[in-house]
Design a protein around this nucleic acid. Structure first.
Length: 463
RNA sequence: GUCCCCAUCGUCUAGAGGCCUAGGACACCUCCCUUUCACGGAGGCGACCGGGGUUCGAAUCCCCGUGGGGACGCCA
């Protein structure tokens, strides 16, 4: 049987890191097995679903390069089909109308909680052999409930967590259609997973508790039950649960923050999944290696430091043209327009080995295109008066020296020797004057790129 | 409260009864490289939640405890 997996987000927000990993694992699993990956938008909560959120999810998938073979399917466009199935269930007796009001149900729930019971529907409208149902009240539009089996256990072999067994007694008759007739999540999932021929449902483990209900409905419909793989959640850097209020950010935020999609993908792949000691690998390699057997069942804490490490790695490998385009954009954000000189390609080459994010890279090269403000601490330490004669002497040499790193280096050495100094004694003030700070690549290389005219101008600032 | 799940260095993890005096990676520390800061290289610090079993032998299997998480919606 061909593998068919799906990613089924609800469009109530952006694509966050947890969703992205779920999507990545589903995608990789399909790729690994030569199957199909399907995108399905679960938008049946009309009140909370937005087209902006749909777009945000699509953007996130696109940025990560998680392409889908089918879809996106929208559940709201499949209403007719859901209603058909519900009618069939009503006729067959696996579903029934329930006239309980929300107030009634709230009261029920509360009293059950007080008694230390698990809150659940008590089945007052559930048709039963020899049971006399109350007369349907007028003016109350009924919901439709699934008639869940009363006895036995629902058991499935979760591909991540192993065998999970839940007693039917723990389950109640869930609502599959609201009073306004629209079907609810648990029901739509069942119909869709069935009719879309999903073979492996890979999703967050907040759905573990929904699984037995879905299996029961699948069985009631005579459908094949797919395999399930429940991924544990991703915690924030601080070990706290991610939520809209706390730490959950869009994957697109990582783009804005200067992370490469390759880095995010590689990081996510390794978060909760492993292939021996391998840490750095391409998505192609990942798709070949990926399996459900090596997914950790426990929750994982996000670690930005490690993401940065991977990002630094991928920046070193990044395509030149890509970097130039990207960095030009980031510089523009900093109100820096890139002039022809110094050549941005050369500048990036000089810095890409020493940077963690693209934002850092952009910020650290601003001084090539705009005169830097001098850091006070650095100035105090290195721009001392007694170095002035040496710098003046260097200035003279720089006016006529061949403008390449070797010649410049030689010129600095000449001054160093003449004034009986150590190399850094001259290099550091130079560095501060030229870049504004005390850290930079090799100073002669910086000077080559900055250009003779600009170098002389900046040294002259030292009064 | 009830049900379900989880538990190896600070973090991500390797580990499917002997290969484990528990391996790798990030972070941290030291040293080397050096023109500063990085990069890179070499070292170092650092963990099997507790208690019982099973077994010749347990990080690995079982039970109990503890801790953490999830679910209990006319949300998904």
């Amino acid at each position: 049987m061909t593998v068919r997996t799906r990613f089924a987000p609800s469009p109530t927000g952006f694509l966050h890191i947890g969703g992205a990993r779920t999507a990545l694992f589903s995608w990789a699993f399909a790729k690994k097995h030569g199957g199909k990956f399907i995108l399905r938008i679960e938008d049946t909560d009309v009140a909370r679903s937005t087209t902006e959120a749909v777009q945000a999810i699509l953007d996130g998938m696109n940025w990560l390069g998680l392409d889908y073979d089918e879809g996106p399917f929208y559940q709201m466009q499949r209403m007719d089909r859901y209603k058909e199935v519900i009618q069939k269930m009503l006729q067959e007796g696996s579903a029934y109308y329930c006239y309980s009001t929300r107030e009634e149900l709230d009261a029920l729930r509360e009293s059950q909680m007080q008694q230390g019971l698990k809150p659940r529907y008590d089945g007052r409208w559930r048709p039963e052999e020899g049971k006399v149902l109350p007369e349907p009240p007028s003016g109350i539009p009924p919901v439709i409930r699934f008639k869940n089996p009363k006895d036995g256990n629902v058991v499935w072999n979760d591909l991540v967590k192993g065998e999970i067994s839940i007693a039917n007694q723990e389950l109640d008759d869930l609502i599959i259609a609201r009073a306004d007739g629209t079907p609810t999540y648990n029901f739509c999932v069942v119909v869709d997973d069935w009719e879309m021929g999903i073979t492996q449902v890979i999703r967050g483990d907040d759905h573990v508790n929904n699984t037995p209900r879905q299996i029961n409905m699948l069985k009631a419909l005579g459908a094949t039950v797919p395999q399930y793989a429940h991924l544990s959640m991703i915690l924030g850097d601080d070990g706290q649960k991610l939520s809209k209020r706390h730490g959950a950010v869009s994957v697109m935020q990582y783009d804005e923050d200067g992370y490469l999609p390759e880095a995010v993908l590689n990081y996510l792949a390794r978060l909760g999944w492993s292939h021996g000691d391998d840490e750095i690998f391409s998505m192609q390699q990942f798709c070949e290696w990926f399996d459900l057997d090596h997914i950790t069942p426990s929750a994982a804490q996000f670690n930005t430091e490690k993401l940065k490490w991977l990002n630094a790695h991928y920046i070193k490998l990044a395509d030149r043209d890509y970097l130039v385009k990207d960095i030009t954009g980031r510089l523009a954000q900093l109100n820096v327009s890139v002039s022809a000189q110094p050549d941005l390609v050369a500048v990036i080459d000089l810095y890409k080995e020493r940077t963690n994010t693209l934002n850092e890279l952009a910020e650290s090269i601003v001084y090539f295109y705009r005169k830097p403000s001098i850091d006070h601490v650095a100035a105090e330490k290195h721009l001392v008066a007694d170095i002035k004669p040496a710098l003046e002497n260097l200035t003279e040499l720089l006016r006529t020296v061949d403008w390449n790193a070797e010649a410049i280096h030689h010129a600095i050495n000449e001054v160093v020797t003449k004034f009986q100094l150590k190399f850094p004694k001259v290099a550091m003030p130079l560095r501060v004057l030229l870049t504004g700070i005390a850290q930079s690549p090799s100073i002669d290389q910086v000077m080559v790129l900055l250009g003779r005219c600009e170098v002389l101008a900046r040294i002259a600032e030292f009064k």
